[in-house]
Amino acid sequence: MEKFRQHTGQVAPLRRSNVDTDQIIPAVYLKRVTRTGFEDGLFAAWRSQEPDFVLNRPEYAGASILVAGSDFGIGSSREHAVWALLDYGFRVVICPRYGDIFRGNSLKAGLLTVVLDQPVVESLWQYAEDDPAAEVTVDLDARTILAGDLRIAFDLDDYARWRLMEGLDDISVTQRHEHDITAFEAARPQWLPRTA
């Protein structure tokens, strides 16, 4: 996983709420067995059918920060949604509330998902619509977002922040606690089912 400390880029304003992971990447793109190359599936239906869709507009072509309405990433657990956003070039998503599984997936895969209140999201939309070329800086170290005159603090728990900043892989962290896992296993009740 790539380390994330600070990122500066353009904002794509996605004025929609309840964007589910079936919209982020439709099921047909889930048949692949690779972990990269999902950028063509990102918002595939909207990109192919709606000429005005924000990612179809040339002025937002280089955006790397997505600002969306509430309940982004609800629905299916497909981590492909996170990979598609990353593969397309997004490093940060900002929205008032996320689907739980999507949020967990994003922080594990190195996509920073920031929670900001609806009014702040509105002002970021306005900022990006007034001047699509304007840049925003997301500073994870300081937990701050800078957008022109706006200086916005955001919350992210220390543990998630540390992992993102260090680019750490969960499995190696957990394997340090191998003895705890083995001790737990020794005490599990006998009647619990085995698949084999």
Binding site: E79, N105, K108, D170, I181, E185
Partner: peptide, 20 residues
């Protein structure tokens, strides 16, 4: 619980999950 693919790998490797 439904989990993502990174977590699937974590469970396969460690039989545990990191959860809040």
């Amino acid at each position: 619980l439904g989990i993502g693919t990174s977590e699937v790998e974590h469970v396969l490797a460690t039989q545990t999950l990191l959860l809040r």
